[in-house]
Simulated assay, not measured.
Amino acid sequence: MYVAVKGGERAIDNAHAWLAEERRGDTSVAELSVDQIREQLKLAVNRVMTEGSLYDPDLAALAIKQARGDLIEAVFLIRAYRTTLPRFGGTRPIETADMACIRRISATFKDAPGGQVLGPTFDYTHRLLDFKLAADGEVPPAPTAAPRQEPTPHITDFLNHEGLIQQEPTNDETPPDLTRAPMELPGSRALRLQALARGDEGFVLGMAYSTQRGYARNHAFVGELRIGTVDVEMEIPELGFAIDIGELEVTECETVNQFQGSKTEPPQFTRGYGLVFGQTERKAISMALVDRTLRWRELGEDNVGAPAQDEEFVLYHSDNIQATGFLEHIKLPHYVDFQSELELVRKLRRDASGVQEAAE
C-alpha cells in the first residue's frame, strides 16, 4: 500500500537547493564541464547511453553531471527524457560486418582473416595507480592508426563453411519494442536481447559469471569482439531509397558455445550475442553469455535450474531503473502502513500473553 503525503514543500525545496550545492562541491575548484565528461569519462557515458536506450553522448554526459556520478540515476534521467522525444520512423538494421573497427579480437582463431586489432584496452595494463594523472599532465600522443575501413567478415562465418555452427533463422518481422510495450513472457530472442542491452551491467555480469561457474551448461569462447563505428541508414519514402543519417559507435560480441546436440538439433557450435552502444565490452560479453543460456528451450536443452536459465528472473530483475524505484520507495513515508502493522504486532503479543497466563 502506497501512502500519498502532502506538505513539506519548503523542506523539499531546501533539500533540492542543498543537493545542487553538494553537486557543485568546492567552488574554488574548477567546475567539471559536460564536454570534459563526454571526452574523458567515455566508458561511463557509454554505459548510460546503453542502459538508457538513447545514443546521445552530450545528453548522457549532462545526466552524469546532474546525477553527481550516480550512473543509475543518470540512466533514469536519460530514460525519462527519451519518453519526450518524437519518433520519426525506423532505420535499417546496422551492418556490423561493415564496421570501421578500432578493436577486433578473437579468442578462437589466432590468425583470423582481417587480423587482430587490440585497440584501446585495459587488458594489458598493470592495474597500478598512475600518479602522473594526479599531476594533470598531458598524455603523450599514441601512435596514430586509422580504423579498419574495409569490410571485416565475422569469425563465425568461417565455421559456417563447414556447417559446424547453428544457422540463425532469418526473420523479416519487425521485432517488438520494449520501450513502447510492456514485456510479455515468454519472450522472443529479440525481446530478450533488448532487455539484456538495457539491463544493469553489474547484474548481467553477475548472471554471466554464474554460468561460467557451473550454474548452467554453458562453456563459451569469445568467437569475436569488435568495436567501431557503423553507418545508420533510413528509408525515405519520398526518395525511394535509403540514405545515411549518421553513425554509431557500438560493441558487438559473438560467443561460440559447444553443444552436444539434443532431440531436435545435431552436435554443433551455437552462439550467444551481445550488441551495445560505445566501447562497452564487459557488458557485450556478459550479454552474449546470458543470451546463450536463455536459449535452452529453443535448442532442446535441459533446464538444470540455474538462475541464468530463468527468463522471468533474469529479465525482470536486470532493469536497474525498475529495481531502484521499487527499492527506494520504501524510504518514503509509510506512516499508515507501519501503524497498522504496529497495532497488529501489539495485538498478537497481547493474545500470546493471554494464552500464556491462562496456561499458568
Results as ranks from 00 to 15, higher is better:
V3H: 11
V5E: 03
G7C: 00
A11N: 12
A15W: 02
L19P: 00
A20F: 06
R24D: 02
V29F: 10
A30I: 07
L32V: 13
D35M: 14
Q36E: 11
K42T: 12
A44C: 01
R47K: 14
R47E: 15
V48M: 06
Y55M: 08
A60L: 01
Q66S: 08
A67G: 08
D70C: 09
E73I: 08
P86Y: 02
F88H: 15
G89Q: 06
T96S: 14
D98F: 14
A100S: 12
A112E: 14
G115E: 10
Q116T: 14
Q116E: 12
D123Y: 07
R127I: 11
L129G: 05
L129C: 06
A134V: 05
D136E: 07
A146T: 11
T152N: 14
D157F: 05
G163Q: 10
E168W: 06
N171T: 02
E173L: 13
T179R: 12
L191E: 11
Q194D: 10
L196H: 01
A197K: 15
G199Y: 01
F203E: 06
V204C: 03
M207S: 05
S210H: 08
G214I: 03
R217V: 05
N218G: 07
V222K: 01
E224L: 12
E224I: 11
V230Y: 01
E238G: 14
F241S: 02
F241Y: 04
A242E: 00
E247L: 03
L248Y: 08
V250P: 02
T251L: 07
T255N: 11
V256E: 02
Q258L: 15
T264P: 00
E265Q: 09
P266Y: 11
Q268C: 04
F269Y: 10
V276L: 13
F277M: 13
E281Q: 08
K283H: 15
M287H: 09
D291L: 04
T293G: 10
T293H: 07
R295L: 10
P307L: 06
P307T: 08
Q309E: 15
Q309G: 04
E311Q: 05
D319V: 04
F326S: 13
I330R: 14
L332G: 13
P333K: 00
L348N: 06
D351F: 04
